[in-house]
């Protein structure tokens, strides 16, 4: 089986790729970071706040992996705890109150698998985000910039538009995890990666994302300018849409429906 999909996984995980904060700093102006979930703690794996996109205020939220070894450890390698998702939710509800669009940048191997995360309700935190995001009455655009690891990524991706970088991946489980569960052999990760259909092209073919963003000149000025232009253009379309919430429901409602066989009984 082709290893093309697993190559994408390796690229998506590469430490040299721009991280969430790089996108925030280069695409927006005047970013002001807000901390904490008002419940328990501030999770450094998720960064959020307000900024301007070509002059208009927006709420921006990003999963941040960090660049240096020290920062990566501090940010838990971009694996959020429940308080990260609750901070994101707080900022999204704040955006709704003040009529600001929400833009999320996603890059995580998954929600953190830890004792404290379970004690503080990792499942409940993700579930609540999915539920509340589905009816948020401001436009939401989510961009997968690296790894899109399962529920931990989806918790910021119940959006009107979901885009993926060309080499980003989006998957229900890591290829290694899948191979180890199904075939008791994590070395079969390449086969798993190909079978899981986790590339940007796969996601678009499955109707899970709308757009694939080219990685030409990634990390350079032109790259961020291009994304800024696309965001501005799309937000203008979404802002005029009176049926936003209904369409968001339909967007997710139809996913997988074609995969379901309906026999008459």
């Amino acid at each position: 089986m082709s290893d093309a999909a697993y190559k994408r996984v390796r690229i998506a995980r590469n430490n040299d790729r721009p991280t969430g904060l790089d996108y925030i700093r280069h695409i927006f102006k005047g970013f002001i970071e807000f901390h904490g979930d008002r419940r328990y703690a501030d999770d450094p794996a998720i960064v959020g706040g307000i900024a301007r996109l070509e002059g208009s205020p927006v709420t921006v939220i990003a999963i941040e992996k960090g660049h240096t070894a020290k920062e990566r450890t501090w940010r838990n390698f971009g694996a959020p705890n429940p308080e990260g998702y609750r901070k994101a939710l707080r900022l999204m509800e704040q955006a709704e109150k003040f009529g600001r669009p929400v833009i999320c940048f996603i890059d995580t191997s998954g929600a953190y698998c830890g004792i404290g995360a379970e004690e503080r309700g990792q499942g409940q935190a993700i579930a609540e985000n999915l539920m509340v995001m589905s009816t948020l009455c401001v436009p939401v655009i989510s961009i997968l910039i690296g790894e899109g690891g399962s529920g931990g990524a989806l918790a910021l991706a119940v959006a009107d538009r979901v885009w993926m970088l060309q080499n980003a991946v989006y998957s229900v489980i890591s290829p290694e995890g899948c191979a180890s569960i199904l075939w008791k052999d994590s070395a079969k990760a390449e086969t798993a990666a190909a079978s899981l259909k986790l590339t940007a092209e796969d996601a678009r073919n499955l109707g899970v994302i709308e757009k694939i963003l080219s990685e030409k000149e990634i990390g350079e000025k032109a790259f961020y300018e291009r994304i800024r232009g696309l965001l501005k253009e799309e937000l203008e379309v979404l802002a005029r849409d009176a049926e936003l919430v209904g369409k968001r429901y339909d967007r997710f409602r139809k996913i997988g429906a074609a995969a379901v066989m309906k026999e008459s009984v």
Binding site: I126, A127, L130, M131, V132, S134, T135, S150, G151, L154, A157, V158, Y170, S171, V172, I173, C178, I181, L182, S195, L196, K197, L198, D202, A203, L206, V208, R248, Y249, F252, R253, I255, G256, A259
Partner: peptide, 20 residues
């Protein structure tokens, strides 16, 4: 996992229905 991304998306789809 055998249904990949389609199964992941069911989390969002069911949550939206519960919300309604």
């Amino acid at each position: 996992m055998q249904e990949g991304l389609l199964s992941l998306m069911q989390m969002a789809k069911t949550s939206a229905a519960v919300k309604r």
